[in-house]
């Protein structure tokens, strides 16, 4: 075994999330031993009860901040981490639970729970970078395991990760997919969404749901104009942008523009 003497210590933290993104690390079945060789898995409750005390060289943070307790906890995580990398739509944009940001949370609590007084929650679900400085954001709902390996490899090698911020359309065209919007009239968020999934949905003749969040310089207004021409009404447009990345600024603004 060619194990380096001093391996970086890796911690994996969970906030409000479904666990799918941190499971992407365990899904790296063929590469898992190489990961364990390259870094010391110091804190990862999903994988092991063994816990090595901080500070940590790399923290992978999954989930959004939805409670006062978590708003405090993320500061402690930041303090004990040399590099903090957020993983997934919850951590980078607030996740699907950020739909609450557009509604009256107090009203929900009073309607849903028999004892609303037991519920201690914030009015919003917010990404980690609204609370502490973040060193790198890895997008996706869930993240792509190859991108996760790329980010970890890059960190270990001390280089920039190759994680492009251009559109999903790039991946469609490179993969030889027929454009679902132009050829079928299917509404698609691909032209305003960041690549990373390998254009999974368009490859199966579905429009993009925007799982990887807004791309660099997204022109959502122009896309909405075309979606309207394809027959989308205002309410549909609002829902179209309010998905796993509803709170991401360009998507939030565009949905609010139609939510009147």
């Amino acid at each position: 075994m060619n194990t380096p003497v001093q391996r970086p210590k890796l911690a994996v933290w969970k906030f409000a999330s479904c666990d799918g993104c941190q499971l992407s690390l365990l899904d790296c079945e063929d590469e898992l031993l190489a990961v364990a060789d390259a870094v010391e898995i110091a804190y990862f409750p999903e994988a092991t009860r063994r816990e090595v005390a901080g500070p940590y060289d790399i923290s992978l943070v999954e989930g959004s901040v939805t409670t006062p307790r978590d708003a405090r906890r993320i500061r402690q995580v930041r303090q004990s981490s040399r590099t903090l990398i957020t993983i997934g739509a919850c951590a980078t944009a607030g996740g699907i639970q950020a739909l609450r940001n557009f509604r009256d949370v107090e009203g929900f609590i009073n309607t849903v729970y028999a004892h609303p007084e037991y519920i201690d929650t914030l009015a919003t679900s917010t990404p980690i970078d609204e609370h502490v400085p973040v060193d790198f954001e890895l997008r996706g709902c869930p993240i792509n395991k190859h991108q996760l390996l790329e980010v970890i490899s890059a960190y270990v090698a001390g280089r920039q990760p190759n994680v492009p911020t251009y559109s999903v359309c790039e991946e469609c065209k490179r993969g030889g997919n027929v454009c679902v919007m132009v050829a079928h009239g299917t509404p698609c968020l691909g032209p305003v969404t960041q690549a990373g999934c390998g254009a999974l949905c368009p490859a199966y003749n579905r429009g993009c749901y925007g799982c990887f969040g807004p791309k660099e310089t997204p022109n959502t207004a122009a896309l909405s104009g075309q979606l309207g021409a394809l027959g989308m009404g205002r309410e549909e447009l609002v829902r179209f942008y309010r998905n796993f990345n509803a709170h991401a600024e360009p998507f939030r603004q565009e949905s609010e523009r139609h939510d009147k």
Partner: peptide, 28 residues
């Protein structure tokens, strides 16, 4: 104002030839 900067025009263009190179390393 109308352009999505999605790059589709360049990718379907039969003469556009631009490319980039990138390096990746294995974990070890």
């Amino acid at each position: 104002d109308r352009c999505l900067s999605c790059a589709n025009c360049t990718l379907v263009c039969p003469t556009c030839f631009c490319s980039s190179v990138e390096d990746s390393t294995s974990l070890d």
